[in-house]
Amino acid sequence: MSILVFAEHDNSELKADTLKTVAAAQAIGGDIHLLVAGHNCQAVAEAASKVNGVSKVLVADNAAYEHQLAENVSLLVTELAADYNHIMATALTTGKNFMPRVAALLDVTQISDIIAVESSDTFVRPIYAGNAIATVQSLDSKKVITVRSTGFDAVATDGNAEIIAVDKVTDAGISSYVSEQLSVSERPELGAASVIISGGRGMQNGENFKLLDGIADKLGAAIGASRAAVDAGFVPNDMQVGQTGKIVAPDLYIAVGISGAIQHLAGMKDSKVIVAINKDAEAPIFQVADYGLVADLFNALPELESKL
């Protein structure tokens, strides 16, 4: 049995989530190959060759894959899929974007967002914002799977896989990249941070998110937000934690001025320790918090920063 895992990267760096997706592949078992599709992505290929449990790294380096357009990448992966039983990608925006296309081109349905592997055809995935956990058996001959990183522990990076160039160029010619606005931050990424401090509607405006900075600096934390704070324009969309935003499970999650809607809880309730600071003692966030503090955040945050 062999498994193709799509490497998540930005042409310069292999994303740590790929190590977790490889762990999911190992739980299925078989010969694991990593696909690096991008442009000028040799550094990623070399990092990928060190991922434990991977025997081959396939590198498709072409301008057609530079921005990992779904139309082009899905054609490439579909062609390669002939040699594999399982095709897997991390359930981040790139994998979520092109993988269902691969599934449809292969005439299979996709098993999305798995958090555990029961067997080579049976997987566990959250549904209804994580309020129910489904065990699903795929009846298709090939399995197309996206993996939720929080469900798996990263594999080590002391491997030595063979790097093989893939010459196939699949350019559908129906989509093109125009521009991007990337958020630049010195802080860890939400998906990789061991501590996250998030603000909600209670922060009142974007300016007040600066109150989280000093605490984040002291804890080496990433800063997140609830949907309400993003919708209100306080902070950009890439900070949103929740059912349809980023799913995180850090060692410590501090929710500030967040009421705790189902959709937000879906994105963070697997965190090891949850702290909630909210002035409303009835807020649902307190039901999932290990430590709750009923307080006005404008008093609590400066005090917390000074005492860390």
Binding site: A70, E71, S74, K96, N97, F98, M99, P100, R101, V102, A103, A104, L105, T109, Q110, S112, D113, R125, P126, I127, Y128, A129, A172, I174, S175, Q243
Partner: peptide, 17 residues
């Protein structure tokens, strides 16, 4: 919570997404 139907329809119809 699948997030797949639109992408699948795009693939089947050969459309961009």
């Amino acid at each position: 919570d699948n997030n797949q139907t639109g992408q699948m329809l795009a693939a089947l119809t050969g459309m961009a997404q």
